[in-house]
């Protein structure tokens, strides 16, 4: 529980942070809310020698309406999502999911950009952004690029983000149509053993903790689009997934939970 030695620099801007990433290379790590990174450092599972603090870039903390989508600054904290009037009106699902992350302490430190960059398949918000068809805006030394959430995650704690890139914004299509989020865990503050996010009546179904990344339940989505019943579609929810095993659940039980929770989420979203 005692981290190895590291240096710490406060970034003055996104550009400054990217410049520092270039200077320090792969021994450096961006620090946002720190609620995933710091515990890993305390266990010495992560030993970056240089932390670049972007958590103070307040100009990257915003939630704005913009041409049919909602633009959310990367340093927007979960608590800001949870209490946002814009989200309440135009994307209540994201607001609701944010309210279920961790506990109040986590939600007042953790950021949307941080949780996406961390790419933990057990986190709630990445799966929600995936189900909602969000887009991640990354900035590097050569400017910005947009990455569809469906293209963003590549593996456990891995994404397409380059070493010298940082997330600056997340774009979510505005939408209030049939949505639901089912989070199954043992204690309120825990990661989901399995979670299911349903957006737009079932056009977007994504799964939490059912593989090495947040994943779309493609088979279920396709069945539903093809006219299958909710029950028949939900029965396909775990198809094509490779769920992990841990103290809470093995692959078989996780697959079962994915089917049950998908059915519940679809029923609630279409109820």
């Amino acid at each position: 529980m005692i981290p190895a030695a590291f240096d710490y620099t406060v970034a003055e801007s996104a550009e400054h942070a990217i410049q520092l990433l270039g200077e320090y290379g792969d021994e450096s790590k961006l620090l946002a809310g720190g609620h995933s990174l710091i515990p890993m450092m305390k266990y010495r599972l992560a030993t970056p020698t240089q932390l670049i603090d972007v958590g103070r870039l307040d100009d990257l903390a915003y939630i704005n309406r913009s041409n049919g989508h909602i633009a959310i600054g990367a340093m927007t904290k979960h608590a800001q999502l949870e209490t946002s009037d814009v989200l309440a009106a135009d994307c209540p699902m994201l607001q609701h999911v944010a309210s279920l992350v961790g506990d109040p302490a986590v939600r007042h430190r953790g950021t949307l950009g941080g949780t996406l960059a961390h790419s933990d398949p057990a986190s709630d918000l990445p799966a929600a952004v995936l189900a909602l068809g969000g887009t991640i805006v990354a900035q590097g030394p050569n400017g910005q690029r947009e990455i569809a959430a469906s293209e963003f995650f590549t593996g456990y704690f891995e994404s397409v983000l380059a070493d010298d890139e940082m997330i600056v914004e997340v774009k979510i299509p505005a939408g209030t149509a049939g949505w639901n989020y089912q989070k199954f865990n043992r204690r309120a503050q825990d990661w989901a053993i399995v979670g299911v996010a349903v957006a737009d009546g079932g056009k977007g179904i994504s799964l939490v903790n059912m593989g090495s990344t947040p994943v779309r339940a493609t088979a279920a989505e396709e069945a539903l689009a093809g006219g299958a019943s909710i029950a028949d579609a939900a029965a396909l929810a775990a198809d094509g997934t490779e769920p992990p095993a841990d103290l809470n659940a093995d692959a078989e039980y996780r697959s079962h939970l994915a089917r049950v929770l998908t059915q519940r989420a679809l029923e609630a979203a279409n109820g």
Binding site: P39, D103, R186, R187, A188, Q189, D190, L247
Partner: peptide, 9 residues
């Protein structure tokens, strides 16, 4: 994280 002491919730 893994040893589950329950909370008020």
């Amino acid at each position: 994280m893994d040893y589950l002491v329950p909370s008020a919730a």
